[in-house]
Every structure is written in structure tokens, then in C-alpha cells.
Amino acid sequence: MTEISSGPAFPRSRRFLLPLAAIALVIASGLARSPWERDLDAAQRAAGFHPARLGLGLRERLGQAGFLAALGGFRAPLADLLVIQAYGAWERVEWGRMNALFQTATALQPRAPHLWEMASWQMAYNAARNAREDVRRQPRELLRVRAEREYLALARDFLERGLANNPRSPLLWESLGRLQLDKLRDPLAASAAYARGADLPGAPAYLKRFAAYALSRAPGREREAHSLLRQIYDLGPQEHLPTLLKELRRLENHLDLPFSERIPPAL
């Protein structure tokens, strides 16, 4: 019978060594690559990858199949699926379930700013509002107010955790500013959030204006707000937007500024 090619270096008598060589190769290379893998893992984490820790808590919330899917590269679609379920919970006015679904979705995809923003928006603008106004569900106003505050606190928590994971997201800073201004009635904190967002690369130009508008609502900070708005105004005619002009004129009147310091009157 013809000998089938096996390479000249390994005669039959020594072939038993080959599987041992294969095992030795895998072990030796494994030991050699281990520090490489560790360093690469650290570098990837430092660059913002692998933020989700697939621990036991998440395993319990996702179930076995979901956990396996999350392990194998279906983490983002799984988070999307949970968001669609949260959408259903919203339609059925199940705020607790919606919160739980968003908590899991954001745990799966902490580097997706829009998930944090969406979760926060749902809590602040739907759950909180409904908790405050739904008299049939809770006739006692005190408890309704308390529920509203809890949902607003959840909304802020979503944004703060989102920012801890995505500190360079203008979207989240903008959302925090809006939440502070519209719902938590803290124009100073809102202005600070807008200003943080405005300083980031890729931030929309209007955030700088929003920071000044919010500051103009903070009692005692009108002069500072005027100064900021005036700086924007002085950038050129492209910045002479109706809201900016209106706000500047309101502050000029409020601060009773001399005409020399005022902007030209509207024609």
C-alpha cells in the first residue's frame, strides 16, 4: 500500500510524539499569550470597551438563553429587544416594569448614550407626570407627589450613571440640563450641565446659548448670564437669534443697564 504523505520529518515510530507536541504547543503559546491577552483586555477597557459586566445579577434578569446571547455577541440586539419591551410597558402604563427593563438594557449597553437618555426621558416626562396626575391610581396627593419625586430621582440617576459611562456625550449633558431646568427646577445646575456639554467636541453650538438661558433663570446670576449672552451676541449676526435677542433685552431691562451697554433696539 502506498504511504500517504505525512512529511519526511516524522517516521511512523515517532508519530506518538506529535499529539504531545500539539498539546505542548497549545500550552506554551497559552502561557506566552496570557500577559498579551491581559494587557489587551486592559487597553480595551481603558478605551471604553467591555463596560458591561455580565455578572450573576444580569444572568438572573436575562435568563439562560438571554445570557448566552449576550455572551456571544448579541448583547446590543438584546438591549434593543428590552427597549422594545419597555415601549410595551410604557403603553400599558407599567412604570415599574419599564424601569426594570431599562435598568437591564442600560446594564447590557452602558456605552450607548441614547439608551440612558431614553430611560431618563421616559421616567421624567411620562412616569413622573403620570404618577402626579393619575388620581384613579392614587387618590392621595401627597403620595402622588412622592411617586413623582421618586421617578424624577430615577431619571436623574439614569443620566448620572449614563454620564459616568459616557462622560463625553453632549447628548447626556444636554438631557441633564433639560431635566434640571424643566423638572427639578434648578437653573444653576442646568446651566452647569449645558456648559459641560457645550465644551465637548462635537457638541451642538446651541448648548452654549442654553447654558446662558438657564443661568438667566437663576436668581442673582442675571449679570453673569447677560455677560455670557452678550459674548455670544458679539460673535456676529448669525448669532442674533430671536430667543437670544429677547433674553438679552429682558436682562438689560432687569439689570437696568445704560443705553450704551444695550444692544440696538428692534426695528
Binding site: V26, L31, S34, H50, R111, A112, P113
Partner: peptide, 20 residues
């Protein structure tokens, strides 16, 4: 750790999809 490859090191896709 020595025998198996670390497949998680290639799972950067979720964060890339999120814009990282």
C-alpha cells in the same frame, strides 16, 4: 485560560455600534 482563545477580546462590536 491557556487552552482556549479569549473570544471576548473580539467582541468590541456592541460598543462600536453605540458609536465608540
Amino acid at each position: 485560560a491557556v487552552v482556549f482563545p479569549d473570544f471576548q477580546l473580539f467582541n468590541l462590536v456592541d460598543e462600536i455600534a453605540a458609536g465608540a
